[in-house]
Design a protein around this nucleic acid. Structure first.
Lengths: 338, 338
DNA sequence: TTGTATGCGTTATCAT
DNA sequence: ATGATAACGCATACAA
């Protein structure tokens, strides 16, 4: 055989008494093939344990069998869950996952991704928030014939290219949960400017107040940037207010943990003096004291769906593109004191 | 030019008035090259923005310019930090990171990795704990001419193939810290059986007791498996003891958080009634209440060093292979009451 | 120091 | 339905 020890398509062809092209057809499931020939080739393939060489395929097809994960390192919890979901589908396929983080903010970001796409020629790429917002990235993929799926807090692309969560709706019901418990002065800690998720969650908060005929008070809205520290800062401002809010919805768990931290430093009891709701259901949420009421969105499920869209046949149904989040009720919410 | 729009080595050769081979020599920094020729070729390369096609190189060289990250999904914090460190070095190189998780426990693990290595033919792979222990994996890489670096809690391979932390030593000093504070009954929550890290940390604990002439009591040692829940279970057993331990060293932060949780459920005050020390310095450690005294190991630094070993020139010094961890003192440790 | 011919393992073209 | 031959883009052996 070969010196490398790896069987090639030539070995298969020779042993099966057919041409390379025929073997190639078997591998690529060409429909116009004699069943008998196909069987014979497949038997040889199984016998010698032949697997096509990905590098040669990539060269000939001008397309790699890799799925790229492009992200701007938002929260680690999300990135890892996405990887896990993706890999669950990719495992046992010929695809591998290639991780390519970028620096949103850097002016070279688009060039960087362009180089990545043009050089690696991945089969498809998954775009994570917040950069999934970026329409030029989607266009870049389309122009290069690279499949893509965008993950986001709302549907801003065709179902084939989108896995979205219903942030606005679920936040509305989360804040509604606080209102039902009797709260009227409900603080909001925003996510960072320019993040679609921050916008959607803010809208959900406003929807809930609207629905309950509560006037939106701008002083109750504090800026945050999804970090623990920004949660602390927001809490310092919010808890200085008089009257104090009796509850706070935080646009993610890390900030909720920061709010909790600051509240405790001030001698406040959670949830007696302050109810807190987070978003993400990261592991910290359930391990905090008290355990945090929060929103869980099905990241891994969305990633699995995305993987299927990325590697699926062209003629297949593209599957779900909207995924519902759920409110996880824990001990950080109670009725207000007064 | 070509229909794909991408310049090839042929374009460069034609424009520079040399042969493909000469261009190839320039790319691969062949020493025997006329400086003038080199300059001319390099100018053309820069002009048309030529970049070698990775797929073609991979085919010709029988080796991909990819770095594989093989892991068994230990803790997310670690995996992500490793990725970050690796990618910091890989960014702006021709290498990309390909993530390949496996299932320790599955009998097919070795086959799975073997297939991965033989098919993808990565330039090098990084082996994360706990599977980095596995010598057959290292042998597999060696046999296939794939570079590898193992990450571990002790040095169990040559420096070229190893980035190790000094778990035993730092745990000894962490437990020593508790002893200096006045503790004598110090509990230990172990990591899972078969994990090298668990073993090293246990040894560190034993060293510290030894050094202080404290007799090791088996009842003070509780089994854990690095999860929050196992920390809770361990605490339940340990806190039932009479006399109770006044301090507990936990082999990671997640278990420390579990111990803290259970202690609080029992109405114990931390650190007054119980001092707790963790390991890892995950983000949860500093966000807990009280903030957790823990051990920080330089994961990202180790990953960067590993990346350099993986892509470095053969004749280069292999760099550091031992990395020191440090004790981060926070509020979860105090002198015992009695 | 540089060029020519050939190989890497697969797919595509165009026959038959 | 199948096969011969030429890409794909780069590297290596061997010449010159």
């Amino acid at each position: 055989m070969k010196k490398t020890g790896q069987a090639t398509i030539n070995d298969v062809a020779r042993l099966a008494g057919v041409s390379k092209k025929t073997v190639s057809r078997v591998i690529n499931r060409s429909p116009l093939l004699n069943d008998e020939t196909r069987d014979r080739v497949e038997k040889v393939i199984a016998e010698i344990g032949y697997v096509p060489n990905p590098q040669a395929r990539a060269l000939a097809l001008r397309r790699n069998f890799l799925i790229g994960l492009i992200h701007d390192n938002p929260n680690p919890h999300m990135v890892l869950n996405v990887q896990q979901g993706l890999l669950e589908v990719l495992r046992d396929t010929e695809f591998e996952l290639i991780v390519h983080p970028v620096d949103r903010g850097a002016p070279t970001m688009l060039d960087d991704i362009k180089r990545f796409v043009e050089r690696q020629r991945p089969f498809g790429v998954m775009l994570l928030p917040p950069i999934s917002d970026n329409d030029s990235l989607a266009a870049l993929c389309r122009d290069n014939g690279v499949r893509y799926v965008r993950m986001g807090s709302a549907q801003f692309d065709e179902p084939l290219h989108m896995v979205a969560s219903n942030d606005r709706e679920v936040v509305c019901s989360a804040v509604g949960h606080l209102i039902e418990a009797g709260h009227r002065r409900i603080g909001l800690v925003l996510g960072p400017h320019g993040f679609r998720s921050a916008l959607e969650r803010r809208r959900g908060y406003e929807d809930a107040l609207d629905r309950a005929d509560i006037t939106l008070q701008r002083t109750l809205v504090a800026q945050g940037d999804y970090t623990f520290e920004s949660g602390m800062r927001a809490a310092e401002r919010l808890l200085d207010l008089s009257p104090r809010p009796t509850a706070v919805f935080c646009s993610n768990d890390a900030m909720a943990a920061g709010v909790l931290h600051t509240a405790r430093q001030r001698g406040l009891d959670v949830p007696r003096d302050l109810s807190i709701v987070g978003f993400d259901d990261t592991s910290i949420a359930s391990h905090l004291w008290p355990p945090l009421t929060t929103v869980r969105w099905p990241i891994a499920t969305m990633a699995r769906a995305a993987a299927l869209k990325l590697i699926g046949e062209d003629d297949e149904d593209s599957g779900e593109s909207l995924f519902v989040s759920t409110l996880i009720r824990r001990a950080s919410v109670a009725a207000p004191l007064e």
